[in-house]
Design a protein around this nucleic acid. Sequence first.
DNA 1: GTCTATATAGGGATAGAC
DNA 2: GTCTATCCCTATATAGAC
Lengths: 203, 203
Amino acid sequence: MTTKAAGQPSRRGPYSKSTERRQAILAAAHAVFAAHGYRGGSLQDVADRVGMSQTSLLHYFPSKSDLLLAVLTWRDSITGDGTTPPDPEEKLVDAVIRQARFNEEIPGVIELYTVLCAESVTDRHPGREYFTERFDRLRRSYTRRFKELADEGRLRPGVEPEAAAATLIALWDGIQTQWLLAPESVDMAGCLRGYLELVLLPE
Amino acid sequence: MTTKAAGQPSRRGPYSKSTERRQAILAAAHAVFAAHGYRGGSLQDVADRVGMSQTSLLHYFPSKSDLLLAVLTWRDSITGDGTTPPDPEEKLVDAVIRQARFNEEIPGVIELYTVLCAESVTDRHPGREYFTERFDRLRRSYTRRFKELADEGRLRPGVEPEAAAATLIALWDGIQTQWLLAPESVDMAGCLRGYLELVLLPE
DNA sequence: GTCTATATAGGGATAGAC
DNA sequence: GTCTATCCCTATATAGAC
């Protein structure tokens, strides 16, 4: 059964049954961690959604923290966060708004990020390193972007690129939290655009 | 023993032994929830810090969720969040910076807020209503403040008071998260001041 | 690769003695 | 008001049969 056979679904490689199973587990874990957080979500919840036993799940991911890190990496690949290099042709405002609207459309993406990010600041949380590095990387990336804009004379005088980078990221995270608690009262894209139009000068 | 006696520490009223115990429990619970979150923190942790049994703790707070809500209310009384009416004489920038620096000095205050706020968006979290109402109240309060400034011609043209309110709160929350993960790399007060100086016109 | 059974630990909450 | 003992539930992880 384990030997190769044309047309068999158990063939090796990136499209093997095993890989599909892993994908299904990641999707289920994404939903569970988004709804209950890392500590609040259980492997049993995830296993039930996939339709397998909790012990079978541990065959694919040896521990709960391994599963968490895999989910975080998987999130990056879905959202493009940290994987897609910024398009130098696209304006910063447009790129931010586009990403904000995209995230808004995928259920659970914002919940997962918001919940796990704050949870990660607690003692010995397995996701802490991931978020620390993500913020470092993002701050550097946006700082570079704002410096380029400053060189073009498009940054409002008095605004420091480093501060603008941290501010944009902070605003983005914070407005997502408010949006989760009151989607009707908060205009995520509007707040982001408002800040960027404030900090950037028209061409 | 339960009858009144001059000089006895077991007298009734706001300074009774029981009240002191409750205060000690609240302080311990504040530290535990800040370090581990609501779901990650245990009543046993709290009881150990106070030096009592877990069951004795439940004599003061009948359930874990009751304890959480008491801690959140206690936090308000410490920080003045939601209890102290804004001083109309103090400039908005000064008030925000002063509060930010104050929070920074009290260990655990920012952790507690950040962790519980994000955790509260998860399913059936007992703190959810508290945070939803807090955001509603804060947005209304800052919106009013920005409208007053707009009437004085001190709000930069094109900035909407409602958006500025949500943005200021979001920025504040988000920068606290970054600060918790990298205190040396993030200037909380600087980012807040930077935004307010951008959105407000000089007198 | 999947399962059952189990080890081991911990959680919140209740009953009732003192 | 404080405790011990306990109930009952849930959790992650391991062992081993199939």
